Structures are given as C-alpha cells and as structure tokens.
Computed example of a mutant assay.
Amino acid sequence: MLTFRKAAVLAVFVLTAIYLIHSSHSSSSSSLSRDSVAESLTADIEPTKQQPKTTGVPSEKPSRPYPPPRQGSSTKDLAQHPLTEVVTKSLREQLQYQFPYDRAGKFPAYIWQTWKYTPANGDFGETFRPAEASWSELHPGFVHEVVTDDAAVYLLKHLYASVPEVVEAYQALPIPVMKADFFRYLILLARGGIYTDIDTTAIRSTTDWIPAEVPRSTFGLVIGIEADPDREDWRDWYSRRIQFCQWTIQAKPGHPVLRNIVASITEETLKMKKKGILKEKKMGGRSIVEFTGPALWTDTIFSYLNDPTYFKMDGNNITWQTFTGMEAAKKVGDVVVLPITSFSPGVQQMGAKEPDDPMAFVKHDFEGTWKPESERVKPIIE
C-alpha cells in the first residue's frame, strides 16, 4: 500500500533524476558551444587552416597590407628614385637644397657670438661683458646666443647632419681662429641673423642700419667695409684694395654668398686634409686671411656680384672702385654695403668717422684675443 511517506520519497527521487538528466544535457551543449567559439577564434588567428568557402572568395588573409603587383608587371614598371642620386649632387646643390634662400623673407631675429665661455660663466671675462650686453640692450626682441667652442661642434653636427663633409671640414681645421671664421658663415647660412665678434659693441640697433625707404624684401645680406686704404703701400697692411669686414655680418639664411664660401672652405679643407698638408704652419703656403678670413670673404662677395647666374650684367664689372670713398650705404643687387664708418668708426684713417657719427653702428675693439699675435689686425695710426 502506497503510503504518504512512500509517495513523498518517490516524488523526490523522480525530480532528482529529471534535474540530473537536464543538467547533463546543458553541460554537453555548453561544451559544444565553447568548442565552436574556440574553433572560430582559431580560424581568425590561423586562416590558412580554414577550408575555402564555396563563394569563391579566398578565406586566407593577405600576407602583406598592400596589393601585389599587377599580373605580368615587373619592377621596371615602378617609379625608381635611388638614394645615390641625392649624394651625387654637388656640395653647393646640397647646401642650396638644405638651406634655401628667400630674398623676400625677413631677417631672423638672432644674434650669434662665439667665445670660450658663456656670459653665465665666471671666466667669461669682465672686458667683454659691456660689449656683449650692448647687443641685448639694443635688440630686446632678439635671441642672443654666445656659443662656446665645445657647443659649436654639437650645434653644427645638428644643423649639417645631412651634409657631413661640412662638419668634417670644420673639425679638421687646425687653428681656432679658422674655426671661428668658418663658424660665422655656417651659422648664418643655416639660421641667418647677425653674427658679430665678442669684442664688438653695438652702437645702434640693426633696425637703423638701412634707410627705411629701402624695402627689406629686396636684399638678403648686409656687410661693411673694413679697409679702403688709398695709399701706395696698402698691400703691406691689407690683402685687398677694398676689404669687407667679417666681424659683423647680417644675413638671411641660405644666401648664395654664404653657400659659396662654405662650399669653398669645405672643399679646400678636405682636399688639403687628404694631401696631408692641413697643418698650422703648412697649409700650402696660404695665410689664414686667405684661407678663411676677410680676403676669401671679400673675393667671394665680388665673385657673387659679378656672376651672371644671379644678376643681369651691363658689361661693367663690380670692382673695388664701386665702393671706395663711400659715406652712405650702397645697394648692389641683393647686397647692402655700408661705409667704413658703420663697422669701423674711430680708426682715424681711410675716411672713417668717429663712433658718435650717425653712420656708426658697430665698434670693433680689435682684441682678437683668440688669434695668434701675428694674425691680429690693428688699425694703422699715422
């Protein structure tokens, strides 16, 4: 006889059996589902193991993120631009590419100087502090940098990384004054602005150097006359009848005169290095003035002013006679030449007036302390 107790036990047994059967079925379905997901992920990671689909579209993913060449095409059909084409350009072409010249552009607001120490260093020297400060005082909106000899190497390596032979030439120069000469051309070619020696004092701001009626977009180089010796023995004192000074130069970056002189010094230096004659007392019999100094600077400027590549020539060459006896600024092409008073006031010769003259812009103290005594240029006092 089925009592209530027996009926209750039987009901519990049946419900337990149904639960176990249902749980086993769900576990099997869940396991199958996980296997299907794993298979799908594996198919995405390793498509080559998946069978091709019946749609005719390949199931494999491309092995590279760009389409393969057209059927039957060859590398001859592709545009080729070998890197060797760049390095085979001449040095002047490389410099022109790296430092393009924009005559209509602005003169950069930089003032560059070089010395053994920065003004922040206690060894800078009290003699040069008033002179160095004068440039900042008269050019408050300019970036004024005094670059040490050690820092110059790293700066040039950065600026001329794409033209390594220039840096090689700079490091190969055997005398500090030659490096100082070369540095001024290099920094102005790459960055532009004003370079001026550490022993120069600014008398008037560069904004006053050129008459306001002369558009700044029409010239890219401002230079001054160092020497205009109207005497028979001028060769005993100066290398050129008209000699342009290079202790103060203003330029827009990339100016052809700077490009030409940088290329000339680089080529000549590396040639002499290869011959083993690039030594302080050798240098093929050439003086520093001729190698990197004002003689080479003067020759490079005259060559530029007489180059039909840049100017339409009227048949008359630009010579020293064009600039002798000047008392006001003169513009020739895109070069402005200032009279001797502008950068050499107070030398008491060659028509130079005193530092209080309206045309006096920069006073040079002729210290040249980084030069050997034989290379220091001093004014001739009669």
Score class of each variant (00 low, 15 high):
Tyr238Pro: 00
Thr207Asp: 15
Ile198Asn: 14
Ala227Lys: 06
Asp230Tyr: 02
Ile225Lys: 01
Ala180Glu: 00
Phe183Lys: 01
Ser239Tyr: 13
Leu173Thr: 03
Arg235His: 13
Arg235Tyr: 00
Asp230Phe: 06
Leu221Tyr: 13
Pro211Gly: 09
Leu188Trp: 01
Phe183His: 08
Phe219Arg: 00
Ile225Ser: 02
Arg191Tyr: 00
Met178Glu: 04
Arg216Ala: 11
Ser217Cys: 05
Arg235Pro: 03
Ser205Pro: 04
Arg240Glu: 08
Ala202Glu: 14
Ser217Asn: 06
Pro211Ile: 11
Glu226Asp: 15
Ile198Asp: 00
Ser205Cys: 03
Thr196Met: 04
Gly193Leu: 10
Ala202Asn: 13
Ile223Asn: 08
Ile198Glu: 00
Asp208Tyr: 04
Tyr195Gln: 07
Ser217Tyr: 05
Pro215Glu: 08
Ile203Gly: 03
Ala190Asn: 07
Tyr238His: 13
Thr207Pro: 03
Thr196Gln: 08
Ile242Lys: 02
Gly220Trp: 09
Trp209Asp: 09
Arg241Ser: 11
Gln171His: 01
Ala202Ile: 09
Glu232Thr: 15
Ile242Met: 07
Phe219Lys: 01
Val177Arg: 12
Val214Tyr: 14
Glu232Pro: 12
Val214Arg: 10
Ser239Ala: 11
Trp209Tyr: 10
Asp208Phe: 04
Arg204Asn: 12
Phe219Thr: 09
Val177Trp: 04
Asp230Asn: 13
Arg241Tyr: 06
Gln243Tyr: 02
Arg204Trp: 08
Asp208Thr: 14
Leu189His: 05
Ile187Pro: 05
Phe182Ile: 02
Tyr195Lys: 06
Glu213Thr: 09
Ala172Ile: 02
Pro174Cys: 06
Trp234Thr: 11
Tyr170Phe: 15
Ile223Pro: 11
Gln171Asp: 14
Asp233Glu: 13
Ile242Leu: 10
Thr196Trp: 07
Pro215His: 07
Glu232Met: 14
Thr201Arg: 15
Ile242Ala: 03
Arg240Ala: 11
Thr206Trp: 15
Leu173Ala: 01
Arg231Met: 13
Trp237His: 14
Ser205Met: 09
Trp237Arg: 05
Pro176His: 05
Ser205Phe: 04
Ile198Pro: 09
Ile210His: 09
Glu226Asn: 12
Asp230Gln: 13
Tyr238Cys: 08
Asp230His: 09
Ala172Cys: 01
Ser239Arg: 13
Gly224Asp: 06
Tyr185His: 15
Asp228Gln: 09
Trp234Lys: 10
Asp236Val: 11
Leu188Arg: 01
Gly220Met: 07
